[in-house]
Design a protein around this nucleic acid. Sequence first.
RNA 1: CCGAUCGUAGCUCAAGGGUAGAGCCCCCGCACGAUAAGCGGGAAAUGGUGGUUCAAAUCCAUCCGGUCGGACCA
Length: 966
Amino acid sequence: MAKDPTDSYRQTLNLPVTEFPMKADLARREPEMLAAWKQSGLYDRILAARAGGPRFVMHDGPPYANGNIHYGHILNKILKDLVVKYRTMTGALAVYKPGWDTHGLPIELQVDRTLGDKKATMSKLDIRAACHAHAMKYVDIQRTEFQRLGVFGTWDDPYLTLNKSYEAAIVRELSKLARAGFLYKGKKPVHWCASCRTALAEAEVEHADKTSPSIYVAFRMKDHAIDGVPAAVVIWTTTPWTLPANLAVVLHPDFEYVGIPATLGGERQLLVVARDLATRFVAAVTPEVRASFAPEEQWAKLGAPSAAGSAASALIGKQYTHPLLETRAEIDHRAWTADHVTTEAGTGIVHTAPGHGADDYKVGVQHGLDVYAPVDDGGKFLADTRYAGQFVFKANASVIADLVAAGALLSDPAATIKHSYPHCWRCKNAVIFRATPQWFCSMEHNGLRGRALDEIGRTRWIPPWGENRIRGMIENRPDWCLSRQRVWGVPIPTFINIHTGEALADADVMEHIAGIFAEHGADAWFAREAVDLLPPGWRHGEFGPADFRKDDAIVDVWFESGVSWAAVCEPDPGMGLPVDLYLEGSDQHRGWFHSSLLASVAARGKAPFKSVLTHGFVVDQDGNAYSKSAIEEKRRRGVKIDYTAPEDQIKKTGAELLRMWVAGAEFRNDIAYSPTVLEHLTESYRRIRNTFRFLLGNLSGFDPGRDCLPDSALEPFDLYILTRVRSFARKAAAAYDDYTFHTVLKDVVDLCAVDLSALFIDVTKDRLYCEAAASPHRRSAQTVTWHVARTLATIVAPIMVFTAEDVWKYLPRAAGDPDSVHLMLMAGIHPVTEAETATESAVLPRWEALLALRAEVQRALEPFRREKHASLDARVIVRPTAAQRPLCAGHEAMLAELCIVSELVLDPADAASDLAEVRVEHATGTRCPRCWRWGTPAGLAGHPDLCGRCATVVAQLAANPPPSGA
RNA sequence: CCGAUCGUAGCUCAAGGGUAGAGCCCCCGCACGAUAAGCGGGAAAUGGUGGUUCAAAUCCAUCCGGUCGGACCA
């Protein structure tokens, strides 16, 4: 190996020896380590070792069991694992029980697509079985992929929302809501396909062009005149059939409105429209109507409804007369304001039918309007209405005719518009918005909203702005619609009286059914009739089980995952409530955090969590979305992207780098992922690994029990490094505690590169290699080397699970040390002691000053080195600053070692500037062929050029040759 | 469009009114004894525009760009 074959002294040195491989070979070795951990029952041993410790519960938010994992999953799971592994290494019992969300529409849709036409011939139970199989397939796939990341947990016993016990828990929580009076039956508009006679989800709706009527209608204000002229608000609609269900009109609070004087049916009126849409309105009305309009100069400026005292504001809350009034004469029609009004089209005044539109519904809820939808499952008007029996789209013509007759239509009755309109994905017919009966959880009952807000205030939100985000959502959200008209889920066990039509949501009945589900699963609901589900002998007033039929709604899957604290944590002796931490992406403010909070406050009066941590989303190098759908979207558009699926990436480079990617990112923001990021991480990884390798190499034959020196016996420089590392460890542990993992990894890399590789290792090489193996000088360096390696291994263990374990295998262990680093306590978790503080304040400032001097020497050495000299060939003359001089005087030899030069002398004069002044000369004397330092040879027989130190070592070796192979 | 949030070297992160710091990447030198390593040196940044201030990456306004939410959909 030595380039100079005459370098026979190489054999006399203590060069590094270790089996710790330089090449990580992670892709191959990680699976082996995972298998070994499994073999040795490591996770169970960890739990056993921590059984008596304090508990820390990080409750897993269940991913949806559909599809392979993507980088967002990786981010989330690894973050959770970092928390759990760190807590475990503080001595806490931190059980990680992974879960999956297994019900819901996406799976049902996926199965639908697979089944195709076969679905029509299948029973609900058969469809559910297919959904079950689909979900379990992806649970298994994802479980394998998550475990491959080195995440520790109860993978053999996860929680699944389709477990019988979980399904029972869902119903039990529903019963609590029913018992406490939160449940009520209301109506809400949904997409409805009249030909399929079913509700549709957004995902089942496709948009296509449709030709619809386009009509402008005047609604006369009741008893309200502006400047003495009766006012009428003008609306525009493409669904005349919804006009019979009109219960309000809304204006935008900030738009400016105008009143156009007109004469209609011989009567003077002021037609109110938004100023910016007036021109288009005028162009749209019939020539006769237009002819009656006053010229623009005479239009009345009404201002904005939000402007106090404006004529427009005077309209708000006032009644108007419905032109088709006679059917619903008792209804109070008024004008309101709402933000969803636009200037895209229409008049700036929106016809509002709460039973036939989402925005309309919101307005209705706000103003206490009926959710009126006089249309049946087949899309025909109900019997007791004016258009009874007419199909809605057919009824358009009748409505228009009646409007003409009432003199309310301002535009051409035959006018149409071609626009994008929702259609059923199956039958391709146009769909309608129609209110149907649904179960709701009231936000106001028992002060739920207010109490949820109180609990938000008692929770720690990380980062803090999460509190505002969820607070705003809880403040504004409407009642929670709990029911879904689907098959793949848990039924809301309610019944309908076949005689009276009354809906029955009985808490005792629900608990009875929870018992059935606990034994047979929710399938029992679909397999049995009402009489077999209701308790035997049960009576409800004069009615018994035979008088009821099952209601057919299932529960919103958000409610399912939202009661995981009840289904999973509460009954588990290793967990309990409230849990310490929920940790999910920031979208879950509206999702799981939200539903868990509401369900728990409603049923238990308090939040299920003490703290909630959120992370951002994975984006690509340019900051654009990196979700699966975003990538597919780009592919569709033909954008070139180099995307490596996580499983392929792991096959190529292993999971460790992905763990470092997660740990190194500031996850409160969005997190960039790209192959480049991973490549750069490879460099950091190599630096850390090689640092470990060097440390381990110099611990060959080191027995900590025998060879460790106490702090007091350490070389001052070694004590400095040890102090630095101890301080680093405390900072790192504190960073883990504060969930700022990225500073841990950055500090580790800095420590390896700056303090260890470029400083400690470089400086101590002479002592480690050249001194006698057991000399105190060498043992001092080794003691610190051992402490440093050990400290660093525990600090990086939560992040670099594989590499830390690899290091641990080769690191000399102290008596009582466990066989896995993951059973260790982390360095730096204990509060700082007085002795440490004293050492630090004595040691650190002194050495920081000396290192500044070292930097000056190295800068001065640079030209010398460029002349192809090694730094050991130099003799430097230093003029320290006045402040540095007391630290240096009398320590020239130590400074020479620190600067890795053969000789360092102090100039009696002080430096003139703030920096030390350094002169470099070639060292004098002879170069010791063993340690390469220049000086005076000792003149040992047979070794004429050796320096004094090396002569002694070589002589000793000659007298006491080490056992071969040592 | 609305709400929230983020923009610091090529990359990942620091500084939270007072000279913008690291590490990696890159360039230049060295490289024997950490060698698919290592050492030294160097170049390189506050998204734009206004404002407050003696002083702004930091506070305010506005614009630009990104992300999440506003989907009964997880």
